[in-house]
Design a protein around this nucleic acid. Structure first.
Lengths: 192, 192
DNA sequence: CGTCTATTTGAATGTACTCAAAAGCGGTGG
DNA sequence: CCACCGCTTTTGAGTACATTCAAATAGACG
């Protein structure tokens, strides 16, 4: 099991003894998802928090008219999960889907809750991670309120510069909240 | 100092001994904001987390063209703050403004950090509060991507049914991300 | 090579914005 | 108590942004 990346990720926020590291690692399961495979699906209860070792995935839903909308993309070194489902233990609202071969480490929510009790530093870490993700999503809301699709795309290219090359532009359109047709025209304009 | 509401709010997530309660309460400062007064402003470093005892406030920013956009409204029993500024200690990105006479209790970020160390249950509570707020904001993003202004307004009326009567419709428009003019027309249609 | 999906292009339509002006409404001072 | 002021809301007309549906083209993958 490749644990280098996740230990570095953790070390950004808390420091662990060797014993604590080993205990944490004992809770992890390694999984590999193929391109287009689902890590979790709408309607299913999401019971794990997932750390991405390699690869890339998208979190999206499908509206009443059958259209997909993308909440975010995540790649190496990011945590993903259907947080609503995880915390309420109710059926999930999102699909999380691999966009290429994706290797992950998962921890069960039940194990995580025990971990919080046993090593409270982990509660701190996930508090901080959640705070950061929350701030990020606040920004996304504000961008949606004030900016045109083209301006949002500019921000997108900067934020996702690391993985943008492997995203089909249809997927980018679904993230920006415009149709693929409109996105195609928009991109053409900005290139000219 | 009126501490009933905040103690009930806390009791929803963690249980405290009398001693812990007293220590927590000793960290609070009581403040009253008049209508239109700012609890925190863009550019200022936000150093406190604020609990609303009575009243109502809005969190908004002003874009490059001088237009306001509202992230959310908060009333009695809610926590507010410019989280980005609080966690990074950098100048804030939001204005938080009272919309009527608003009585609050504040805790300094520095005291909160000490509190986390002294009584880790509080770290749990704020982890949970942040998770819930994050999920809420994820939903807001998805609504923005898939729904028309009118559909978003339907959701808004349900979510804010408790305080909608005291919100000028200009403010609702700024929350929905449409112009007041368009909102006026939209509302007229849906009433007919 | 053929099939399936993604992307582009075209034309018509709908949603929402801009600018301008009128009407309504609440608070303040004389 | 009324008149005025400033702000909100409404209405109108023209425009821009973005969608829909349809069809053509280009790419990816088995």
């Amino acid at each position: 099991m490749n644990t280098d990346l996740i230990l570095k990720n953790i070390a950004k926020h808390i420091s662990l003894t060797e014993e604590e590291k080993l205990y944490f690692l004992s809770l992890l399961k390694e999984l590999t998802f193929k391109n287009k495979q689902y890590i979790t699906q709408e309607g299913a209860i999401c019971k794990h928090v997932t750390f991405i070792n390699t690869g890339c995935c998208r979190t999206f839903n499908i509206d009443n008219n059958g259209f997909e909308h993308i909440l975010n993309f995540a790649s190496q070194d990011y945590w993903v999960g259907d947080l609503y489902s995880i915390i309420t233990k109710k059926p999930g609202v999102f699909f999380i889907q691999a966009m290429e071969k994706t290797e992950v480490l998962q921890i069960a929510k039940s194990d995580l809750d025990n971990l919080y009790l046993k090593i409270p530093k982990f509660e701190r870490m996930f508090r901080i991670l959640t705070e950061n993700a929350y701030v990020d999503t606040q920004n996304r809301v504000m961008e949606g309120l004030g900016l045109t699709a083209s301006e949002r795309y500019d921000i997108f290219t900067k934020k996702y510069s690391g993985i943008i090359h492997l995203l089909p532009q249809k997927q980018i359109a679904l993230y920006l909240g415009v149709t693929p047709e409109f996105f195609s025209r928009m991109k053409k304009k900005s290139n000219s």
